[in-house]
Measured scan of single mutants.
Amino acid sequence: MDTYKLILNGKTLKGETTTEAVDAATAEKVFKHAANEHGVHGHWTYDPETKTFTVTE
């Protein structure tokens, strides 16, 4: 398992979190669910070198 990071750049919610996942696709599902639960919808990017997802509203 690897550690993946999410950076939230929402209009009303900003922050960072991490998750352990077997691959980037699994981490993305976890992060998108969490972002949706917090009402953050926007443009997603992924940097494979740093294993970091970013969502920007």
Rank of each mutant, 00 (worst) to 15 (best):
T18N: 05
V40N: 03
E49F: 11
D2E: 13
Y4R: 02
K32C: 10
A21F: 04
E49C: 10
K51P: 01
H33C: 11
L13Y: 15
F31A: 01
N36K: 14
K51S: 03
T17F: 15
T52G: 01
G10T: 14
K29Y: 08
T19H: 06
Y4N: 03
E28Q: 08
E16K: 07
V40K: 03
Y4G: 03
N9Y: 11
D47C: 09
E37G: 07
V55K: 01
L6D: 03
A21T: 04
T3S: 07
V22Y: 13
A21L: 02
N36I: 13
E37M: 14
H43C: 13
H41Y: 14
A24E: 07
K5C: 08
A25V: 10
T56R: 05
I7V: 10
E20D: 10
T52R: 02
K14Q: 11
V30N: 06
D23G: 03
H41F: 14
K5T: 15
W44F: 04
T50C: 05
T26A: 14
E57M: 06
K32F: 07
V40T: 03
T18Y: 14
T56W: 09
G10H: 05
K32S: 05
E16P: 04
T45N: 09
K51D: 00
V55F: 04
K5P: 02
Y4P: 03
F31N: 00
T26N: 08
T3N: 05
K11A: 12
H33R: 15
P48I: 08
F31C: 01
H43V: 14
A27N: 00
Y46S: 00
E20Y: 12
A27M: 01
N36Q: 13
D47W: 05
I7F: 05
T50V: 06
K29L: 12
H43G: 06
K14M: 09
M1Q: 09
A34S: 08
M1V: 10
D23Q: 02
K5A: 05
T50N: 10
T3E: 10
T54L: 05
E16W: 14
G15P: 04
A27G: 01
T17Y: 15
T50H: 07
T26L: 05
A34G: 04
T26W: 07
I7L: 05
L13A: 09
T18R: 07
V40L: 10
D47Y: 06
E37A: 13
T56C: 06
V55H: 01
H38L: 15
L8S: 03
Y4W: 04
H38D: 05
L8Y: 13
V30T: 10
E20F: 11
G42P: 01
F53H: 01
H41Q: 13
T12N: 13
G15V: 15
K5S: 05
G42Q: 02
D47T: 06
G10M: 13
E37Y: 10
T18P: 01
H43M: 13
E37L: 14
A25T: 09
T50L: 07
E28N: 04
G42T: 02
Y4T: 03
E37D: 09
K14T: 10
V30S: 06
T56M: 06
E49L: 12
T19W: 07
E28A: 09
V30C: 07
K51E: 01
G10N: 04
D23H: 03
V55C: 04
A27T: 00
M1I: 10
G15K: 14
Y46W: 03
L8T: 05
T45Y: 08
T3P: 04
E37V: 14
T12G: 09
T54Q: 06
L8H: 03
H41I: 13
T12R: 09
F31L: 06
D47S: 07
K29P: 02
D47N: 10
T45Q: 09
H41T: 13
A24W: 12
T3Q: 08
T3A: 05
F53G: 00
E49M: 12
E28Y: 15
W44T: 01
T26G: 10
E37Q: 13
T56E: 08
G39H: 06
L8G: 02
T54N: 04
A25Q: 11
K11D: 09
T12F: 14
T52S: 05
E49H: 11
E57S: 06
T50D: 05
H43F: 14
W44D: 00
E57H: 05
F53W: 04
A24M: 11
K14L: 08
L8Q: 02
V22T: 12
A25F: 10
D47L: 04
P48V: 08
K5V: 11
K29Q: 11
F31T: 00
T12C: 15
Y4K: 03
A35Q: 03
T12V: 11
A24C: 14
L13K: 11
N36W: 13
T3R: 09
V30I: 15
I7S: 03
T56Q: 07
W44C: 01
N36D: 11
T56V: 07
L8R: 00
A21M: 02
H33K: 15
